[in-house]
Design a binder for these strands. Structure first.
Ligand SMILES: [Mn+2]
Ligand SMILES: [Mn+2]
Ligand SMILES: [Zn+2]
Ligand SMILES: [Zn+2]
Lengths: 138, 138
DNA sequence: CCAATAAATGCACTTCCATTGCACTTTTTA
DNA sequence: TAAAAAGTGCAATGGAAGTGCATTTATTGG
């Protein structure tokens, strides 16, 4: 709890009660979360506050946004070494078609993609869809 | 014109006037199109008709849907050999951050992605964002 | 400690795009 | 040519992201 506060302060984010709780919530989850998930977890708080908390976290490199193709924006905590405020995140994401959960595979970096002459890559989004290890029966 | 009709018939799609025109429109474009693009090109037709035409084309393997991360669904004609009705499309897509256009790079197949134990891949979406060859000054 | 200021939160509203229900029209079939 | 099927048009819905503004809470300087 206290560590979360100092962590947020390190990231130049004022550790309000709500922010600490949201951070804690995301840290305890191993999967990416949608705004609606947080909404359901904190029904007393307003959606706007939760939304802006995520945006603040994102701007300050605490979480990164994930577009897993479901049309619902997900967020996940950044790793220690992750500096996606500066450059893009290079790991791939997995979306399970069975349990509908999305996870960061931070160990799995996106391979270098060859492009035709004249094309300049600035960002890459790689999402694999299928069955996760929980759903495949390990 | 006549070829388009027989092509659509081969794909089990009745070649109505609207469908032939939309197919022609997409064939002349080298880039992926959004519903709004078609809407602007055919102002006399209703959006629903255009929408359902795309869905019919998609269901019958004439076009494939592209999620380029802009939040706007794009569509592009399938290649001859493409059988994305059966299995997923394996090529990558490029979205230009300057001109906002999205293209299929059908020659560039998505590399095999290694996954942790227990994960089963069924589909892969790979989108590279950056500057296209037109915008990079060749 | 108090007043002034800044930051955070809550509520209502808007926008954007995808999608659907239903009536009407056109085409196909028998 | 009548019945059935397919296609089309209009209107409405729904989900999710985003914003303006008032209110509350925290911070700061005297
Ligand atoms: Mn991630
Ligand atoms: Mn494509
Ligand atoms: Zn799963
Ligand atoms: Zn471009």
């Amino acid at each position: 709890m206290k560590e979360i506060e100092t962590f947020l302060e390190d990231k130049k984010v004022r550790p309000t009660a709500m922010r600490v709780l949201i951070y804690k919530y995301m840290a305890e989850k191993e999967i990416a979360v949608a705004l609606a998930d947080i909404e359901n977890a904190f029904t007393k708080a307003d959606r706007t506050t939760l939304y802006r908390t995520l945006k603040t976290f994102e701007k300050n490199g605490i979480v990164h946004q994930i577009d897993d193709g479901t049309g619902i924006t997900k967020y996940a905590l950044c790793d220690k070494g992750c500096n996606c405020e500066i450059e893009q995140d290079l790991h791939l994401h997995f979306h399970c078609l069975n349990c509908n959960e999305t996870v960061c595979l931070t160990k799995h970096k996106i391979p270098h993609i060859n492009l035709p002459e004249g094309y300049l890559a600035e960002d890459v989004n790689l999402v694999v869809k299928g069955i996760c290890e929980k759903c495949s029966g390990q």
